[in-house]
């Protein structure tokens, strides 16, 4: 559940600094709206195809990346068909496709941990050390909590079943949250107890 779709590789695209990739993605997407037209879309599309080729992403994975969006894009296409004409409908949908694929390229060629580290480093430069530390602690804690919350939820569900209670949303969510909150308070204590070198003010 907690792994991204990273495709290992050693291409220029893989090796480019993560934040540069994020920056480029942002620029391309903005440009597609500012310079709205077939020409800029075609140019962006070509560059994108080139990058996918350089990164040696198998076509199968490209298709998998766009597939979850196909259904929505189909709807947008149909809507535009009624509102405008097929040409404009095609344009809008293709622009979405280019943006989604460009973003997927970032995910496919960048390890999550590298991206997180890059973000932490960038934040470390613009934020005071303490805030940057807080953010990186929050990121790790969240990864730690996801399986923990899932376990608590399963325990609550089984307990309700064992007691012959229905499993309505409310009956499941409330006890899960209360137990998770109690656990969170104990974890906050443990973090304090385990950080003797951190400054503690009461």
């Amino acid at each position: 559940m907690l792994t991204s779709d990273y495709v290992p590789g050693d291409s220029v695209v893989h090796r480019a600094r993560p934040l540069i990739k994020v920056g480029l993605l942002f620029l391309v997407c903005t440009w597609l709206f500012v310079r709205e037209g077939w020409l800029s879309l075609a140019a962006a599309g070509l560059v994108l195809v080139a990058f996918f080729a350089i990164a040696r992403i198998p076509p199968k994975i490209v298709v998998a990346a766009i597939r979850p969006a196909l259904w929505v894009l189909g709807l947008v296409f149909v809507a535009q068909l009624f509102l405008a004409d097929w040409r404009f409908a095609g344009f809008v949908v293709l622009r979405f496709a280019v943006m989604i694929l460009a973003a997927s390229l970032l995910t496919l060629t960048t390890r999550t941990s590298d991206l997180v580290e890059a973000i932490e480093r960038a934040l470390g430069r613009i934020l005071p050390a303490r805030s940057a530390e807080a953010i990186s602690l929050a990121l790790s804690l969240c990864m730690r909590f996801i399986p923990r919350v899932r376990d608590i939820f399963e325990e609550v569900k089984n307990a309700q079943r064992a007691r012959g209670l229905g499993t309505s949303w409310r009956a499941l969510v409330t006890p899960t949250i209360v137990r998770a909150l109690k656990s969170a308070d104990e974890i906050a204590r443990a973090i304090v107890a385990r950080s003797p070198d951190g400054p503690h003010v009461r």
């Binding site: 790790s140 730690r144 923990r148 104990e186 974890i187 443990a190 107890a193 385990r194």
Partner: peptide
């Protein structure tokens, strides 16, 4: 702590 699930943070 009593419950290691609440002590392990990473």
């Amino acid at each position: 702590f009593q419950n290691p699930d609440n002590q392990i943070v990473m």
